[in-house]
């Protein structure tokens, strides 16, 4: 890796027309950051998602100040789902370490467990929805409910999006149809995304139980 310009102020003060700078620039290989494009892609997606969820949190904080707000009582099932998600994240982290050590046979089991736990989480979330619907707590009943359904649905969609890429990586691994660096990268990036999903859920869940 050649030296990357990490300081944006230094970068923006370059004088590209000067011959001393030109000598340095001619040796530049064209990459700004020492990251793979997939890595940068996942990061960008996480940034955009963070903006979306932050704006929802801001809207939530603004809306909850109005007198008609009635907090939901969180069922114990929601805590179980949270524990499942934490456990998924831990398993994925272990799987990532295994794949980094080229232990792909063990990583296969890890990936399957991750998939099972994630589907369990989604089923759990749907059960919570059912629980509320049975209680007559619809989205239109109260703004707190509306935000609850909105948060869980959006988080759930993010989980499903992650599962799509989990599925691709797992399929390739099981069909023995992969290049080692690529599958490592795919597993690594998926695990980062799963940690991101956990953090988002913790923030949303924390916000909902705290208010």
């Amino acid at each position: 890796m050649s030296k990357r310009e990490l300081n944006i102020f230094k970068l923006l003060s370059q004088k590209p027309w000067e011959s001393s700078q030109a000598t340095i620039d001619n040796a530049h290989d064209g990459k700004t950051l020492g990251l793979s494009k997939a890595n940068l892609g996942v990061r960008t997606i996480m940034v955009v998602s963070t903006v979306i969820f932050s704006l929802f949190v801001v809207s939530y904080s603004d809306r909850m100040l109005v007198h008609d707000w009635k907090s939901l009582s969180e069922p114990w099932l929601l805590w179980i789902n949270t524990v499942i998600l934490i456990f998924t994240s831990i398993v994925f982290h272990k799987t990532k370490i295994l794949s980094d050590q080229n232990k792909f046979e063990k990583a296969k089991n890890g990936l399957l467990l991750v998939g099972f736990l994630t589907f369990a989480f989604i089923t759990g979330q749907l059960l919570v929805w059912q629980h509320y619907v049975n209680l007559g707590q619809y989205a239109s009943t109260n703004p707190a409910n509306a935000f609850f359904y909105l948060f869980t649905a959006l988080h759930g969609l993010h989980v499903l999006g992650g599962l799509f890429f989990w599925g691709r990586a797992t399929t390739k691994l099981f069909q023995n149809n992969y290049s080692v660096t690529k599958i490592k990268q795919a597993i690594g990036l998926c695990s980062v995304y799963w940690h991101f999903l956990l953090i988002v859920w913790m923030v949303l869940f924390g916000l909902m139980i705290a208010t």
Partner: peptide, 24 residues
């Protein structure tokens, strides 16, 4: 747009040819 934007940003940052610094 987000899908397209992902492409534009990462192509500019990471896929430039040799010698093409950001300030060029």
């Amino acid at each position: 747009f987000t899908m397209g934007g992902l492409n534009y940003v990462i192509t500019v940052l990471q896929a430039r040819t040799r010698g093409m610094t950001l300030m060029r």
